[in-house]
């Protein structure tokens, strides 16, 4: 299993994402200026501030050369995971439903959160159980997931903030969603920061282990 971790100017969680992927397989960086995924089996778009978050979060990154390749890969069924800024980029690219808005309470959120797995039918959650609650940190200012009411019924929710803790005002306490086919998943909390007991939780490992458990080409 070979993961590719996308690096934009302003990405800051690429190293942690590489470390997390390497718990489940091999991993390498993919540069934003190359429309080439180097034959990887899965793509992770990590957190940070791609292109300075100018204009809107993710708005400029979505038009980078690597995103052309990621879009083709996703449309062909390849597993793609967007974490935090990566989630924002995938929403802007139209690969995931909705958009991310500034947190309702106007504060930067940086804390450990309880996240419930709602859909274990995606390549990023298939090693987890529905109803399982993960302890994963979140750190964001623009994490309020929003979809207009007329779209909401069709959205495939994958993660929800558990225990009535909706830290940012997301619609229906949604923490992560998938594409209709399930192969593209995005979430605001950071599973790649929860892979070592030294940092308080290893609950993020299951996300990367899930992708590794999917047979290549499946």
């Amino acid at each position: 299993m070979r993961f590719g971790v996308v690096q934009f100017p302003g990405t800051c969680d690429d190293r942690d994402a590489l470390l997390a992927c390497r718990q489940a397989g091999e991993a390498e960086l993919l540069w934003h200026g190359d429309a080439d995924l180097r034959g990887v089996d899965a793509v992770v778009i990590p957190g940070g501030f791609s292109y300075g978050d100018y204009l809107r979060v993710g708005a400029i990154a979505r038009f980078s050369p690597v995103m052309e390749a990621v879009t083709a890969f996703a449309r062909a069924g390849g597993p793609v995971l967007g974490i935090c800024n990566g989630f924002q980029v995938l929403c802007e690219a139209g690969l995931l439903p909705g958009a991310l808005l500034p947190n309702l309470e106007r504060r930067f959120i940086c804390r450990q959160l309880a996240i419930e797995v709602v859909d274990a039918g995606t390549p990023w959650t298939c090693a987890l159980a529905e109803g399982q609650v993960l302890s994963i940190p979140a750190k964001h200012t623009t994490g309020r997931w929003y979809a207009p009411p007329e779209l909401l019924g069709d959205v495939r929710v994958v993660f929800r903030y558990a225990r009535d803790a909706n830290p940012n005002g997301s619609t229906d306490a949604v923490a992560g969603v998938a594409s209709a086919a399930g192969n593209v998943v995005g979430l605001m909390p950071h599973p790649e920061h929860a892979i070592d007991a030294l940092r308080g939780s290893v609950d993020g490992l299951g996300v990367f282990a899930s992708a590794a458990a999917v047979p290549a080409g499946a």
Partner: peptide, 8 residues
């Protein structure tokens, strides 16, 4: 395409 996100 870029300057606005018509969803929001």
């Amino acid at each position: 395409r870029l300057l606005a996100n018509p969803l929001i």
